[in-house]
Computed example of a mutant assay.
Amino acid sequence: MKHAITILIMLLVLKLSAQSQINVTIIGTAHSFKKEYQPLQSFNEVQSFIKELSPDMICIEAIPTYDTASLKEIWPNTMRKADQLRDTLENITSDSEQVIVGAQYYSAYDFWNAYYHWFQAKQTEDSLRYFSKYFKDQSSSEFGLMVFPAAQKLGITHLYGIDFRDGEDEFMAANNKVLKKLFFSFKWKPLRVYLKTQKQYKKAEKAGELIEFINGAAFQDSFSALIDDLPKRLPKLEEAKFVKAYWHHRNEVMAERIIQTAQANDAQNVLLTVGSAHVTHIKQFLEKEGHQVTTYGQILNIKNQ
């Protein structure tokens, strides 16, 4: 009897553990794609992959509405526009429900869900009034080229922002100081690695292989290594320590928000689209917390075998 109870408890623990584990698939992206090279890139393949994956939810690199500190730091002018729109929300009429839903999202500071619904809206004369004043063009971003079309095909109505940007101004100031210090103190190796990576990036874009390049472990890991190596390269510069600490903190917060959002929505199969430079650290944190992570780069490697 005692052994039976022990086995029952063990099975219960294993079941609860399986239920709490989240399967996260990460697609690394650029935030802008040059229009002249867009027809060459594998955007359709990414859309097809997302459709086949059929995630329970899609998390994106956008600031959630509850993070007002980040919103105020990054989007103060957009927030003012949202406040103006909110004052006229009751008077909005449109033959497209997506226009109205988008306006409601926008007025609540949920800008990328607003853009998503406006992306789906019928381009009528009535809707174009809102597009011209509030809509941020997504035709060259990862959203307009991959995320929005795929989510629309899946019938997904809401995207979940998980970004964290509070303290971004201080981070950018410290980052600029680090770059200057690296240059004037002749710390050439990290600069050479950075410049080499940028050259490879441009070459891949021209060849129509940018998605594949930025999802490769070599690109993602080299950027992470550059950040992690800064305090060793510049041991006396406090800004170098701050840049590394802030970068890790931002990625950790994003990972925590993925977990919290998935658990709150009872989602086990999650897709994350995020700037490629974030992939390595977010993956490490999620795995440390016991979750299963697969990168798009790993998927491509399996397909190419």
Rank of each mutant, 00 (worst) to 15 (best):
P39Y: 07
R80G: 09
D67G: 05
S42K: 13
P39H: 06
N77E: 15
F43W: 07
L40R: 10
T68M: 12
Q41I: 08
L71R: 01
I92H: 02
I60F: 02
M57P: 02
Q41F: 04
E52R: 13
L71S: 01
Q47G: 01
I74E: 01
I74Y: 00
T88D: 13
I74R: 00
R80T: 13
Q41S: 06
N44P: 04
E73R: 03
K72F: 03
Q41L: 10
E52L: 10
A69E: 14
E73T: 11
S70H: 04
V46I: 13
R86L: 11
W75S: 06
A62S: 13
L89I: 15
E36I: 14
L40M: 10
P64N: 08
M57H: 06
S54N: 15
V46D: 00
I92F: 04
S48E: 15
L71A: 04
T88E: 14
R80M: 15
I74S: 02
I92W: 02
A62D: 04
P64F: 08
C59S: 08
Q47Y: 01
Q41P: 02
T65R: 10
E36L: 09
E45H: 14
P55F: 03
S48K: 13
D67K: 03
L40Y: 07
I50N: 01
S54I: 11
P55M: 07
E73N: 07
Y37H: 12
S48C: 09
W75V: 11
P55V: 11
E45M: 12
E52C: 06
Y66T: 15
Q38W: 03
A82T: 05
S70T: 09
L40K: 14
L85I: 09
K81T: 07
Q38A: 08
P39C: 06
Q84G: 08
Q38E: 06
I58F: 00
T68F: 12
L89N: 09
E52K: 13
E36M: 08
Y66N: 13
Y37E: 07
P55C: 08
E90K: 15
L89Y: 09
V46A: 03
R86S: 10
E52I: 14
M57S: 06
Y37D: 06
Y66Q: 14
A82F: 02
D67L: 07
F43N: 03
D87N: 14
K81F: 06
P64Q: 11
M79N: 05
E36P: 03
E90G: 09
R80D: 12
K81G: 02
I58A: 01
N77C: 06
A69T: 14
L85P: 00
S48I: 10
L53W: 09
M57V: 14
E45W: 07
Q47V: 15
Q84Y: 13
M57R: 05
L53C: 10
N77Q: 15
W75Y: 14
I58N: 01
Q47N: 09
L71I: 12
D56Q: 04
P39M: 08
Q84H: 12
L71F: 05
E36S: 11
